[in-house]
Design a binder for these strands. Structure first.
Length: 555
RNA sequence: GCGCCUGUAGCUCAGUUGGAUAGAGCGCCGGACUUCGAAUCCGUAGGCCGCAGGUUCGAGCCCUGCCAGGCGCGCCA
């Protein structure tokens, strides 16, 4: 990266200036290079002169001038520099530098934007983890999209990523599902029993009951409920889990592992970890229950792990689960949760610390609510089921591409208004189509060129000096910026940076496309512009891949 | 009452971890297709960045206090 070279140049200048007695700083300041707010301010800017101002007791612009006077002879990739505003030093890079960057994009191809930033780091992303007690709804959809896109971004950034789904296949919820299905089963067999309070009312509960009748007939009707309920619970949760898997797969989301909560009880790890924490003094007994001393880690109150009747709470398995994750040796854990679970963050961080690990090994990405909007009004309830809108319904209506794009279009910590009509519309208003259209357009361009027997020139023969307009250089600069966007998305766990980048790139391209013609009688110019189009196509495809959104050749 | 998140143009949102004149899309108004895809582009207008203090060369961003909305505050998950 060019930034490294530039930093060295500035550091050398600072050192020389100090040796010459022009500057007196005691410690070399950190050189921060950034992209200027406006194009006219150059390609790279530094604020170093301003940060030095107070300790040098000189105006920033004077310091900037001293620094520049001590710079070594201008390297060829710098066209010029200037002092601007309160004391920025702006660097303008030469066109040939940018032309080389374009060749670099083509050379890297589908690897352009990838890095070894996370090299040697194993990172786990746990997401969705919906209870297998009902189908996925749109809230899970946003979680699934964000988690999956994060995993893709991290993978592209060199991390070794494992995607995991934690299955809550133990405890109250599952029992309640079993009872609900059993009740429907009895009802369908003409022997109605009271439906459990807080039971699951969805149609899918009937579906499962019918499935059991189809497979097993009515053999359970006369049996003792206590004897058959475990079967109902087990069967129902299996069916739901299969359905969840199918919905996710249709949403282009797959997992490397499916971790069973129940297994933590079966292999004794819950009991074992509670014993460990007890010996460390983090677990105590009170009022007949066992408590986790989470207040020691910033939680509001201590939390029960084993109830006075001896049944564990979900927190018990969460402790064992996170111990298990930690023991698997990940350098970083990411939990993607709904915002309604925000209150659990302190206690899970507490678990991490109590187990003797640094708390920042875990990052929790909280996803705020999704509001589905149709023509300006919120859609709360599905007409078909009378319940929450299902992910599968949404996908059926707007398609996977639009759903994934929209779900990752906002920062995770802000609410998302999902405009259904917009997501379906085939116009520039719809950002998905707007972006995909660029890809299709470029593909169309190459089809047209082929028709005219014009081939994309090789990097050796292309004359990129023909790309000298401001728009062409801007386009290349935008491509050049892509790897940085990927790394920042990975670093801050912010997928929306990719969607915004795509929209911006698409806008610059469309604008260019309307102003200039790619194919003309000037064959060297045509070759150069086709090379530019190829670069845009590559970056577009790579970025869309990160979102799990298709890059269509025709639309 | 306490905790977390949010508050930026009429609407939906960005804002490069504290930098230059706060940006984009939609909507409004006005323009551009006999030429590579008009599913596109160009232009105009629109702002006490919730309010009030503070920190410093500099604050939409950091600190404090208010106001408003969302979510959470169980021996439920």
């Amino acid at each position: 990266m060019i930034e490294g070279n530039l930093k060295e140049l500035i550091v050398e200048a600072l050192v020389r200036a100090k040796e010459a007695g022009k500057l007196k700083y005691s410690q070399l300041p950190e050189i921060i290079l950034e992209r200027p707010a406006e194009k006219s301010y150059g390609d790279i800017t530094t604020t170093v002169a301003m940060t030095l101002a107070s300790q040098e007791r000189k105006p920033p612009r004077v310091i900037a001038d001293i620094i520049l006077k001590h710079m070594s002879p201008t390297p060829s990739w710098i066209e010029r520099w200037e002092i601007a505003g309160p004391g920025f030093i702006n660097f303008y890079l030469s066109p040939s530098f940018w032309h080389n960057q374009l060749l670099f994009v083509l050379n890297r191809g589908d690897r352009f934007g990838s890095s070894d930033y996370g090299k040697g780091m194993r990172i786990q992303v746990e997401f969705v983890s919906a209870n297998p007690t009902g189908p996925l709804h749109v809230g899970h959809g946003r979680n699934a999209a964000v988690g999956d896109v994060l995993a893709r971004i991290l993978t592209f950034s060199g991390y070794q990523v494992e995607k995991e789904f934690y299955i809550n296949d133990f405890g109250n919820q599952i029992e309640l599902l079993g009872q609900s299905v059993w009740s429907r089963y009895m009802e369908l067999n003409g022997k109605p029993v009271p439906f459990p309070e807080n039971g699951y009312h969805g149609d899918y509960v009937y579906d499962i009951a019918r499935e059991i009748i189809a497979r097993k007939g009515s053999e359970f009707v006369e049996k003792d409920p206590a004897e058959v309920l475990p079967f109902f619970a087990e069967f129902a949760s299996q069916v739901m889990l299969e359905r969840i898997k199918a919905d996710l797969e249709a949403f282009r989301v797959t997992f490397d592992s499916w971790f069973s909560e129940k297994s933590l009880y079966q292999n004794g790890s819950v009991a074992q970890v509670l014993e460990t924490l007890k010996s460390k003094g983090f677990i105590y007994e009170q009022e007949g229950a066992l408590w986790f001393r989470s207040t020691q880690f910033g939680d509001d109150k201590d939390r029960v792990v084993i109830r006075s009747d001896g049944r564990p709470t979900y927190l018990a398995s969460d402790i064992a689960y996170h111990q298990n994750k930690l023991q698997r040796g990940f350098s970083k854990l990411i939990n993607v949760w709904g915002a309604d679970h925000g209150g659990y963050v302190p206690r899970v961080k507490g678990i991490i610390k109590a187990l003797g690990y640094p708390e920042d090994i875990l990052s929790v990405v909280l996803i705020q609510l999704v509001r589905l909007m149709r023509e300006g009004v919120e859609v709360k309830i599905s007409k078909r089921s009378g319940k929450l809108i299902l992910l599968s319904d949404l996908v059926e209506e707007v398609g996977v591409d639009a759903a994934r794009f929209f779900f990752t279009m906002r920062r995770t910590d802000s609410h998302l208004d999902f405009d259904l009509e917009l997501a379906k519309s085939q116009s520039k208003d719809n950002p998905v189509y707007y972006v995909q259209y660029v890809h299709a357009r470029i593909c169309s361009l190459f089809r047209e060129a082929k028709k005219l027997s014009i081939a994309l020139p090789s990097p050796q023969e292309v004359d990129l000096n023909r790309l000298n307009s401001e728009e062409e250089l801007s386009l290349i600069k935008e491509l050049y910026h892509f790897p940085k966007v990927v790394i920042e998305s990975a670093l801050f766990l912010e997928p929306h940076r990719i969607t915004f980048y795509l929209q911006n790139l698409a806008s610059i391209f469309h604008s260019y496309y309307n102003k200039y013609r790619f194919i003309s009688e000037d064959l060297t110019l045509t070759g150069a512009r086709l090379t530019l189009a190829k670069g845009v196509q590559i970056v577009l495809k790579n970025a869309l891949d990160l979102l799990g959104v298709s890059a269509p050749e025709v639309m």
